[in-house]
Amino acid sequence: MKGPLSSLKILDFSTLLPGPFASLLLADMGADVLRVESPTRTDLVRVLPPHDGGQSTSHAYLNRNKRSIALDLKRPEAVELVRQLVADYDIVLEQFRPGVMERLGLGYEALKAINPKLIYVSITGYGQTGPYRDRAGHDINYLALAGIASYTGRQDSGPLPLGVQLADIGGGSLHGVMGLLAAVIHRQATGEGQHVDVSMTDCAFALHGMAGAGYLGAGVEPDMENQALNGGSFYDYYRTRDGRWFSVGSLEPQFMQQFCAAIGRPELAARGLSPKPEDQQELKRAIGIEFEKRDFAEWLEVFAALDACVEPMLPLSEAVEHPHILARDLVVEVPREGLPAQRQIACPIKFSAGLPAPRHAGGALGSHTAEVLAELGLTPERIAALKAAKVVG
């Protein structure tokens, strides 16, 4: 079994999270992903704790099913090797600031001259154009600038630093994969490659699916706890007597009626439809009082048999063992060289034809350098000479 993307060959110059998460999805679906890494400037994810068997668990996961070649791109000999690879690896994924790849002689126009069908995907914080194109940033900055943080949080404590990197993954990674695959389809139809410009800030800005439409179309400014889905209604989290939490999303009347009956307050169901903020806050207080009357385990029993959009908030240690997560095969054993297999999050996309089993976790820097160079036709003597000269690692 090869996977639906087995025809794609991708040179991945990205580091940290956005690009590597994108290429992880592609590799899991069968693409041949070759990471091009610096032998002297380590990707910080390689040393990011926690570690298992002396290896970063984040690196082992994000670089699953990929090969690694170590090249010093400041050396002309290394740049020439990339130019040779582009003749075969006709998709490039890179995450440098705008202009860096051009200065290395590896920009889109330079590589397009070698392979006119090249697809070149650039994932950056602010995009290839605009006044912020050269500005540094991280996930929290992109969410702040895009307006998402302005209505994500509590009025009395301010915006929340999200546990998941929404702009990095939801913006850069997932939109990067979409843009790349769209360009592949375009190339199949026309024979033309192209440069795909993915800005994490742009993509975060585009995630304003409801509040953004409300503001641009009707002038309604979203704020913390003033929207139906951000704490401005009973759609929220509630603490149990023993300090745990439940999520309540019983928006539709049939769900709200079940929920209110289950907590012993059927008369509250009608209040869920009220558009008045004060009514919603009063309803939240009433629901909160009821949840505080029982422990987490007791509420689990109450809601287990109900289809009312009420679920417990689970820590990750419980989420990975949840019967539904396990039934969906979302935890997988991944082989590692010289170490026991490691449990990792599986590819979440299901295909009726199936996917290949994970081949290996992320490996050592440059662990496939000799193998890849041999595929280019270099002799063992030439490879040894390049290693001695520190062109490759």
Rank of each mutant, 00 (worst) to 15 (best):
S6Q: 08
L8R: 04
I10W: 03
F13P: 10
P18E: 01
G19D: 00
G19T: 00
A22G: 11
L24F: 15
L26N: 03
A27R: 02
G30E: 06
A31V: 07
L34F: 01
S38I: 01
V45T: 15
R46A: 08
R46M: 06
L48A: 13
L48E: 12
S58L: 10
Y61L: 15
L62D: 08
R64I: 05
K66D: 10
D72Q: 03
K74L: 05
R75Q: 15
P76G: 01
V86K: 04
D90I: 01
I91E: 00
E94M: 02
V100F: 03
K112S: 07
A113Y: 08
I123D: 01
T124K: 09
G127R: 07
T129L: 09
D139W: 03
I140L: 05
I140W: 03
A144N: 00
A146P: 09
R154P: 06
G158P: 11
P161A: 10
V164Y: 04
A167T: 11
M178I: 12
G179Y: 00
G179V: 03
A182N: 11
V196P: 03
T201I: 13
E221A: 14
P222D: 13
M224L: 07
A228I: 15
G231S: 11
S233V: 09
S233C: 10
Y237G: 14
R241L: 05
S247V: 15
L251K: 05
E252C: 03
E252N: 02
Q254L: 06
Q257R: 13
C260H: 10
A262C: 09
P275A: 09
P275V: 06
K276L: 07
P277A: 05
E278V: 07
L283W: 06
A286Y: 00
I287D: 10
R294M: 13
A297V: 06
W299Q: 04
A308R: 08
V310F: 02
P315Q: 11
S317G: 08
E318I: 04
E333Q: 15
E337D: 14
A341R: 12
Q344D: 12
C347R: 04
P348D: 01
F351S: 04
P356S: 12
P358Q: 00
G363Y: 08
G377N: 10
G377R: 05
L378H: 03
T379C: 06
K387P: 10
K387V: 10
V392L: 11
